[in-house]
Design a protein around this nucleic acid. Structure first.
Lengths: 347, 347
DNA sequence: TTGAAAGCGCTAACAT
DNA sequence: ATGTTAGCGCTTTCAA
């Protein structure tokens, strides 16, 4: 092992801005200026500094940097659970925007923390420059407190604390369902359209239902209570509920489901009874899960712009960092995707 | 706004160990000892410190702490892309283990970094205590260099650098497929079992194929080249390939697919030609995607223990932190899941 | 059981 | 264009 290699293996931690300064024959201030591309650095100094850094495999110590500058260059993501179809696109979008802007992303699932009743949130002003809060990732009380102190926060699928002007980013439900139901009516001539509810009291569920009702009213159709079926965001529940309705003699020519899972349940119930989709009944779901293109017939659905929401939220946080005025509430449109089950394409 | 509330809103950053020390009438050293539960602290001092902390809403500054102790209490996760079905369970497992042990988790998708040809990895000894590397998340060269310097690393679905004794955790492919194929033979009496390949050269793909071959050999059956079909880990490709085989008159009584997507393609190809699954042909996939229970017939498959792998890897890293001897290579077994498509259950 | 004080590695005035 | 120096908030000897 030669001298240089030996230096290396000991190095990593022990190579500081001082070693670089000494080797480059400048002061540590100049090295710092070079590092941060601020202040003036002579061309020759710059050259020597650069090669000294290479020579020593110098990497600035993050903690020291953060402490001195009182910036952490870290964005926190708080969410209750790490689960579900949305998680990957959400995370992907946040990570991409954050790292492009030079920020690290630290993520904490807060359910365990809530259970433990720990005093301080795992992520906050002490270790991040700002946080992204997904759904119920952070108790109101903390959001309010931090809002008071001006700590940058952006909320995703959650309303900011009352009276705050902090940004929040949401997925659009109502208009998308309204459009989908209108499509069923106008493009496929459906008139008796059943709605497969999600969970009562759940926000998305209610908004989607509202979209259904709006489209029905808009088309001059009657809103029939018997056409509101239980779906429970669940395949089995939906299958049973649609099955029962069918057995009871309920007639419909389309089903708009509150999510894809329940749409699959409806599909099964109908297939078991010889009802053809989409020939006899049009079917549309919500979520655009991966399996939508794989089932037979492929499932028409509505796609929430999860990754776009994630990127928008992250950008809003970065804007907060820059001191820009908060953008307020943003709602991103969901997209109706026509496949075979509504009657559109062949496959 | 009363005095206390005002203190609060200014607080957050400005409340330091000093404020606490002053209010509690002790030195900062004592506060620090109390904070870290090391060294001696008198009962009365402890009491005063505790209430001073509460009073001031004190939260220790992470950067300062890290700098002084040269620990970051941070685990890094490096992966090439944030995508795929495995990501959520992988991440969930890592986050759970890390935060339980008091570590933060910072995640970086390294594809952009590789593209940019940036000099230093975004995560390393300068900002983490150790890293988890998933698949091709980190170029060999860096793994080797850091291995030399003793930086704690654990590899997931990737071999550690040659000559290192660093831990790696993998998912078992071969035995699981072998078992599945044996099941097709022994439980369902199948004799002409086709294999739907993944991608040639791909590691998982090769291992799964090896499992198929082992089971065939073991059962005293002949390994027929014509039964090796192209699947490409893709529904369309598999559908076309199985369709073509069928048109060409190929006969088989079972298909073992390298993944669920291609199994779905096979299912479609057979259904289009009136071949019943599982009555005429048994079918089994790999991955246990969410849709396996939703398709009709439900898809028998093999489930990789992704979350368990994540937890094992994280625990191995924590063990490295403690200075324990590296555990070496660990392979976690995958599980055969019988549903209807192989001929087992009713639904 | 406690306090004083010397850093940890860096940034950012300030001076030159 | 560059160097000197005073911190950033905490941990950790070392004395007392």
């Amino acid at each position: 092992m030669n001298k240089k290699a030996q230096d290396r293996s000991e190095a990593s931690d022990s190579v500081t801005i001082r070693s670089v300064a000494k080797l480059a024959k400048v002061s540590i201030a100049t090295v710092s200026r070079f590092l941060n591309q601020n202040g003036y650095v002579g061309a020759d100094s710059a050259l020597r500094i650069r090669s000294a850094m290479d020579e020593l495999d110098y990497v600035p110590n993050t903690s020291a940097r953060n402490l001195a500058s009182s910036k952490t260059w870290t964005i926190g993501l708080l969410l209750e659970h790490i689960a579900g179809d949305f998680f990957t696109p959400l995370f992907k979008g946040i990570e991409a925007e954050a790292s492009e802007a030079g920020y690290s992303l630290v993520t904490v699932s807060t359910a365990p923390w809530k259970d433990l009743g720990a005093k301080n949130p795992p992520l906050g002003p002490h270790n991040t420059d700002g946080i992204l809060v997904f759904a119920d990732g952070l108790p109101e009380a903390w959001a309010e407190r931090w809002n008071q102190s001006g700590f940058p926060m952006v909320f995703i699928q959650q309303e900011p604390p009352a009276g705050s002007s902090l940004p929040s980013v949401h997925v659009e439900n109502t208009q998308a369902v309204r459009e989908a139901v209108r499509h069923l009516i106008e493009a496929h001539g459906r008139r008796r359209i059943a709605f497969l509810r999600g969970q009562i009291g759940q926000k998305d569920s209610g908004e989607r239902e509202a979209g259904y009702e709006a489209a029905i009213a808009e088309a001059g159709l009657e809103l029939l209570p018997e056409l509101m079926l239980e779906g429970g965001f669940d395949t089995e529940i939906a299958c049973a509920s649609v099955g029962a309705a069918l057995e009871a003699g309920l007639a419909f020519d389309a089903i708009c489901a509150a999510d894809d899972d329940s749409a699959i349940g409806a599909l099964r119930a109908m297939r078991e009874r010889g009802i053809r989709v989409p020939e006899d009944v049009s079917l549309i779901g919500f979520d655009d899960q991966e399996y939508c293109t794989l089932v037979d017939p492929s499932l028409s659905t509505i796609r929430a712009p999860t990754e776009a929401v994630a990127r928008a939220a992250t950008r809003a946080l970065l804007a907060l960092f820059r001191g820009e005025e908060p953008k307020g509430r943003v709602v991103l449109p969901s997209e109706v995707i026509c496949r075979r089950s509504c009657g559109c394409s062949k496959r």
